[in-house]
Design a protein around this nucleic acid. Sequence first.
RNA 1: GGGCGAUUAGCUCAGUUGGCUAGAGCGCUUCGUUUACACCGAAGAUGUCGCUGGUUCGAGUCCGGCAUCGCUCACCA
Length: 1041
Amino acid sequence: MSTPITTPELPRSYDPAAIEPSIRDIWTQSDLGHVNAPLPQGSTPFAVLMPPPNVTSILHLGHALGATLQDVIVRHARMRGMETLWMPGTDHAGIATQTAVERRLLQDGKRRSDYTREAFVDIIHEWKDEYGAAILSQLRELGASCDWPRTRFTMDPVCAAAVREAFFQLFDEGLIFRGKRLVNWDPATETALADDEVEMEDVKGHMYYLRYPLSDGSGHVTVATTRPETMLGDTGVAINPEDPRAASLKGKKIMLPIVGREIPIVEDEYVIMSGQGDDPKAAFATGFLKVTPAHDPNDWEIGQRHDLEAINVMGPDASISDKHGWEDISEEARCFLGLSREDARTAIIEWFRKHELLEEIRDYDHAVGHSYRSHVPIEPYLSDQWFVRVTDDRLRGEAMRSINPEQYDGTPPPRETGSREGDGELSFSAPRYARSFQQWHENLRDWCISRQLWWGHRIPVWSKVLKFSEAGTPPTDLGNGMTDQTSWCQAPFCDRADDTLSIRLQIDRENEEVRILACVGRDAESIESDLEAAGFAQDNDVLDTWFSSALWPISTMGWPAPSAFPETEGLLEAFNPSSTLSTAREIITLWVSRMVMFNRFFRDGRLPFRDVYIHPTIQDGFGQKMSKSLGNGVDPRDIIESHGTDALRFIMTQLATSTQDVRLPLDLVCPFTGKTFTPEFITSSTGHQVTAPIQKSPDDPNRTMVTVYGQLSGTATATDEEPLARNSSSKFDSGRSFVNKFWNAARFALARSESPGTVDSLKSLGIIDRWMLSRIHRARRTIDAAIDSYQFNTCAEAVYDLVWRDFCDWYLESIKPTVADDAAQRQVLLTSLDVISRLLHPICPFVTEALWPHVQAMGSPGLPELGIKPSDSVSLASWPETDGLHDEEAEQQFERIKEIVNSIRRARADHDVPPRTKLTMAMPASLRSVIDPVQPAMLAMCTLEKIIDLGDEDGIQVHVEGQIIHLLGGDDEVDAESERARLQDRISELRKSIGALKGRLGNPGYVEKAPAHLVEETRKTLEQSEADLVTAEDSLRKLGA
RNA sequence: GGGCGAUUAGCUCAGUUGGCUAGAGCGCUUCGUUUACACCGAAGAUGUCGCUGGUUCGAGUCCGGCAUCGCUCACCA
């Protein structure tokens, strides 16, 4: 038969750049990933929930990892025949995007206040369009098989409807409230932040000791503080009741310096006594604590307990101000007005020093909350904000009860009545993350959801403030704050409440005012205009991004009204809950928790997903987290360009272990020469290791280039003369090699599998073919188990070993001499290639898709006992059913063959037999029975002339299974000296191991307690070793030792 | 300070209910380009599995202690 040596249309090496675009087109044309809903009867739904990336900036390798793993899961599920939904989308990321846009505007010297709200939002929209498109295109390049027609953005109408409905329901249920609270305030962006948007940073500061005179002139007390500027708002001084000085100070008052405010001394157990207890603060404490309820959360609590006034002495920008609640300002204090908090601190200290009231200043290191966006210190700030009462059992309790009981520490708070769908069905991989989830909920506080931003979902509440004289005086038992009792109030709308209007009142007794809060549901524009006509105004604030993110699992599927968005009909029923959420660690609290609470609340206890897989964090070469803001993020497209997408995906899969984060040392690609080199690094102003903004070409120091960090940090701009250097990393080399290896194996297999025969029974096949098929079966099982348990590295390893070790190294080498004349073997070869392509596809979709038509064109692959359905695209091909391929006997036989081949190769190398010298192998009958059925393979793999029965020949001795094989026909005499040395080494090695084995078997504990099969195995090994020892000793004797 | 994780070959990392005479990739040494692939093949070297006690017939794996590194929560007296 005249098989061509190579297939001409396939080039000698895999060129991803030339092939990938057309493969993407194939998937686009076939609408791969698009699911039609409602699902047909009898189908099995499977969904992965994609965390929508922020439109702040393009994706980096951390996202590429997440996307790759999700796509592996999704492609695997799809091939297994499930109706598989993976919906793509992006998140508007309120504060993050707004800050990014403001930063860009600032480069042109413009500020937010230079624009109207509408104009500014338009600018952000442009940014969103640009980056949103870039992100989606990155995902496509990665090969993500999403349901593209269903792409969503968190501010799409369907998502806005969900936000509106969710807010309305929560408001109506009393789970959303408005109140004056101390919140985390970011004075740079002038917005409130949630607790988890605050990052603690260590600060080298000072402890200031201030003397506060007693009003009666009988002396002073000394308070310790790190924030002297807040003293303007002090309304008390606290002392521990146990403090011996407390008694004599009872009832006394302080005359607050500068301000001239007379403030009480109160007793509170919260106060640490100087030098006592375990608290490290005790070493710095004086026993007297200045209490500033409006500027410190702990002081706020003390203030509540002792009925102290909260006097806010700052404006929203954290400068000293008497316009936000400070009414008793003195002449002395006026000179501090308008100072920033930093300047005010200096000025106050100077005042105390001048008046000899400054006792001491000591160095003090402590952690201070900073905004995770603007990175300025957070100001605890008293303001009116909106909150979700997540501490309510209907939210927090449901989240806690959803945890898989095996992963819960203790028992969750009980439900009042019985159990419910969703209870205990949420599992984390790795399980330890369930603990973080649990602990987060145990310490939960109400969630501040209002943001003083322009970019986001606006709060759907209209309000109007009325004096008691207009509205009526509220019954005294209603107290201060929010109430749903509206009957006493004579304001318009108070008697109106229906499916789209919910009224709450916020009572302010001090000012004798009531704020009427009217929450409007969706599709009720007429009510909105009625309200506005009556003088109500919509709240200016927008919602925390995570409010809409929390609804992502259901809003994208059309909740609450799929009929209003017909393309979403049937999705909720089929895909809520979804199967898996794959996300990063830091998102567990910000997002996972809130999705669970909301999904369960709005969907009768149903979970948003059942499994949460936490993937590793990608770090740079210095162990720093890869991030957009740090500027060390690598665009996956750089790697796609340097190594190909499959190589990137393969390495990402291989890196995903359950414990380790991933370090990726980076290289640069010189734009002039294409050469990869290690860049120079510098320490940035934030103390991080980053690439120097400008790098020299490794070949020509006169030519320079700009790095991504240079570009992002604004310190360098790429030009034609000084172009941008793309990133790369040698970490991906082995992935590229792997893909190329498979490509060439396929080329070879295709060239050898013309006119494949029909196989009637697997038993009619030879050992080599049966072995290959059994290995395929094993790999398939390993891959399935690995993906099902999110052990992606195991999956990658199984695929690698199957392709490279089993298929290339052994199978292809073994069949070379026979395949041309064996039609059945050609069928096995072709079918193996078909099945391996399927198994490899989820990880390496491009190369497998590129080869697929060539495989199918060779005939119709197939074997008895093997379930594979034909398909035009491997992405839609069935996942192989391989159970019938399992062949224990063939595997064992082939293992023996491999061992014999290895021994012969080793012996040839040891004896320096030239690689092309063909030897004659003389072997005993017992081994011939193993080798004879595969003689052609044996001759080829060991470069042998022929195989004969063992006689009295001399020659190179090979010891296998306690037997001797002789290799004849080497040109040179065997070097007796080195042969002796080799044998002696071998003998001492064997003696050592025999000693160990005998010791083990001589131990009664082992023989009695260890599993029988292990003891049996040990005995066999011992027997074998002893036989090997005898052979080796014999040989040594013959050499005449 | 609380919690979690890591420490295995020169480097990056596997090693899932204890059975290991501890693996992979890269790198290194030697040899090999007529015959799929040099993004290749063959052969080889390299480890007191952080330290220290304990449980066990048996510990890289389980338990206690210590050391170093990382993450996270708390902490503006």
